[in-house]
């Protein structure tokens, strides 16, 4: 149904999304796509409505309007846990993992939705340790005692354990040291080359653009800029969009 002439169908397709908290609407009419093997970066200042959009896709905020399709299937009516089961991987803001549980328990919980049994989950932990070698020796450490960067790795690893089709990351760079941000972005790059579709919500433009194929910029709940990274001449245009210097442009 999408009008864009793309090589493959989008794995995540959001159209005319309206959402908010309770009766407070924060996001009006937001549309974008995430293609397999690509990263779509959802950018914007603090409070622009990026996280709210992500939460609405995950089913945590009520949808006041619009559609959300995952691999062609409309998931807007599904309960949150069913969206996860349907192939949505979510890494929430602020490294939201289970800090009182061990690293291993956290990762295994990530595979809960597969219902394959404890033993099998344990065997598949290796894939995560390969992506994040730093976690390998910390399996029985309480997750809350890890460094910020390692907690972020646990959070991403957790989402990957559920074998998602689309991975959504909410501000993975927030509060991390620059070197760690680089490491996180490198792992995102690896994931996209494995064919995963990634939605990257970020405040940090340059880090995000370094891995993104497509950017969508939000301000005060609306799309103010939208286009492929390859067409960006420099980042000033995003800066302008951030500070409200461009006239809002409706999403195509």
């Amino acid at each position: 149904m999408t009008e864009q002439p793309v090589s493959s169908e989008p794995l995540l397709s959001v159209r005319n999304l309206v959402t908010g908290y309770g009766d407070l609407r924060v996001v009006w009419d937001v549309s974008f796509d995430v293609l397999p093997g690509q990263v779509t970066a959802l950018l914007g200042r603090n409070g622009a409505g990026k996280s709210t959009t992500l939460r609405a896709i995950a089913g945590l905020n009520k949808l006041h309007g619009g559609t959300v399709r995952l691999a062609g299937e409309d998931i807007a009516g599904l309960a949150s846990h069913k969206r996860i089961k349907a192939g949505l991987g979510v890494v929430q803001e602020n490294k939201r993992i289970f800090k009182r549980r061990t690293v291993e328990a956290n990762l295994m919980l990530g595979g809960y939705s597969l219902h394959v049994g404890r033993r099998k989950l344990k065997d598949s932990l290796d894939e995560i340790y390969e992506l994040f070698p730093a976690l390998r020796g910390r399996a029985s450490t309480q997750a809350g005692q890890l460094s910020g960067g390692q907690q972020q790795m646990v959070a991403i690893g957790q989402a990957l354990m559920g074998h998602p089709k689309v991975l959504m990351l909410d501000e993975p760079s927030a509060g991390l040291a620059p070197a760690i941000v680089l490491e996180v972005m490198e792992s995102v790059d690896k994931l996209k080359s494995s064919g995963l579709a990634v939605l990257l919500v970020e405040q940090a433009v340059e880090a995000a653009v370094s891995v993104a194929d497509h950017v969508t910029v939000l301000d005060i709940g609306r799309v103010v800029m939208d286009g492929p990274v390859s067409e960006l001449d420099d980042l000033d245009i995003i800066k302008d969009a951030y500070f409200g210097r461009t006239a809002p442009r409706p999403a195509s």
């Binding site: 945590l60 846990h81 996860i84 939201r96 919980l109 939705s113 404890r118």
Partner: peptide, 26 residues
């Protein structure tokens, strides 16, 4: 010691994060 139990404790620690792991909290 069981997946169910771990999920239970996860729900008690953070309902929303548990939902995001595909646990049917209800």
């Amino acid at each position: 010691g069981t997946m169910l139990g771990i999920a239970m404790l996860a729900v008690s620690e953070d309902r929303e994060a548990a939902l995001m792991r595909g646990i049917n909290v209800r």
